[in-house]
Simulated scan of single mutants.
Amino acid sequence: MAEHQQLAGIMTDTSSRRIDLPLIDHHCHGLVETELSDDEFRSLATESDWPGPAGTDSLDSPFGLAVRRLCAPILGLEPLVPIDEYLAQRRNIGAGAANRLLLRSTGTTEFLLDTGIPDARLLDPTAMAACAGARTREIVRIETVAEHLASESTAAGFVSRLPEALADRSREAVGLKSIIAYRHGFDIPAERPTGREALKAADEWFRAATTTGTFRITDPVLLRFGLWAGIDTGLPIQLHTGYGDVDIELFRADPSRLTSLFRATRSLDIVFMLLHCYPFVREAGILAQIFPHVYLDVGLVSHYLGPGSGTAVRQAMEIAPFSKILYSSDSYGLGEHYAVSAANWRTSFAALMDEWVSSGWATPKDAEKIATMVASDNAKRVYKLDA
C-alpha cells in the first residue's frame, strides 16, 4: 500500500504542485505574451473562430472549469474562484509573469514547438525557453515552407526546389508537421505524385494566386508532394488528426484513412506521430499497434476535456504499445493550456496506473516505467533528443 500511494506522488502533488516526473511536450505552439482583454482570452480558450451567441461563454466549459480549478492556485487564488476574479488576477500579475508561473508549474523540461502558425504575437522558441525555464526545439511545418517558397518562385522552380528548401529549413529541427488534415483531409492516394502531376498542380496554383494575391496550399497533389518531401528528410512527421479548428471537416481527419499511406511507407526509415486523435483515439491506438512507424498522443483535448480528460488518456492506453504513446499539450497562446494539460495528464495517468497496481495488473515498478516512457522517454528516443 505504501508503494501504491507513493506512485501517485510521483505523478502529481496538487497541494504543493511538486512535480517529480519530467515531461517532454512533443507538440505545442508559442505563447501570446501581450496583455489580453477578457474577450481576447475567451477567444484563445476555444478552437472556434467565431464569437458565441448572446448568453453563452467559451469559459462556461470543461476548460473554463479546469482554469478555475487548476490555474487559480498557481496565480495565488483559491480553487474555483469565479472566472472574472481569475481574469482580474491575471491582469494584475501581468501576462508575462502569469505565463512564467503557469509554464513552470508543468514540470516540462523540453518543448517541441510547431512554429508554422502565422501569428506575430506568439513567442519564438528562444523567448519560449526563457519564459518556461526549459529547453525548446523546433518542429517545422511543411505547408508553411511550401507557401513561403511559392511566394518567391515560379511553378517549375517550386516543384524542383521544395525538397531542398524543406531539407534546408529543417536542418536544425527535430521534426516536421503537416496540416493536410486541415487543408484537404486524409482521403489521398498513398503514392508519391509524379513530377508531371506536381508541375500541373503547381501551374494551376500559381495561376490562381495571380487572382487571390496569396499562396495557400490546398491542392491534394501539392499537399502529397510536400508530405513526400518531408518523408525524404527522414525526420519524424507529425500529422494533425481529429478535432481542431474551424478548417477541419472532422470525418476527413480520421487517421484510419491513412492506412494505405502507412502500408506504403512501412519499410522506409520514417515515423509518423498522430497528434490529438480525438475522437479517433481508439483508431489511432490500433494503427500504432499494427504499424511499427506510427505513434500517437492525446494533446489538445488534455486541456479542452477538462475533468473528462481521463477518458482520452485511458483510451490511448487500451491497445497501443506503451512505447508508442507520447505526452503533448498542443498548447497555443495561453499559459493556461500548458498548465491544464500537464496537470490533467498527470492526474489521469496516475489514477490509471494506481488502478492497475491496486488491481494486480502491474507492479509499482511497472507503473513508474510506463509513466516515464510516455512522459519523456519515448520522445527522447523518437526525436533523438539526446543526440
Rank of each mutant, 00 (worst) to 15 (best):
A202P: 01
F225P: 04
L235P: 05
L223C: 11
L223V: 06
R216D: 12
D203G: 11
E204M: 12
R224A: 08
T211F: 06
F206Q: 01
L227W: 07
R207V: 08
I237K: 06
D203A: 13
I237Y: 10
G230C: 10
T210H: 06
A229S: 14
A202F: 03
D203T: 13
T218I: 10
G234Q: 14
G230P: 04
D203S: 14
T214E: 11
A208C: 04
T233G: 10
I217H: 01
P220S: 06
T210A: 11
V221I: 15
F206G: 00
D203P: 08
L227S: 05
G234T: 14
G213C: 00
T211H: 07
T218E: 12
V221F: 07
L235T: 03
T233Y: 11
V221N: 08
A209M: 00
A209Q: 05
D219C: 06
L222D: 00
T210Y: 08
P220C: 09
L222I: 02
G230E: 03
T210L: 12
D219K: 07
L227P: 03
T214C: 07
A229I: 02
D203E: 15
T218H: 08
G234V: 12
I237T: 06
R216A: 14
F215V: 02
P236D: 13
A209R: 00
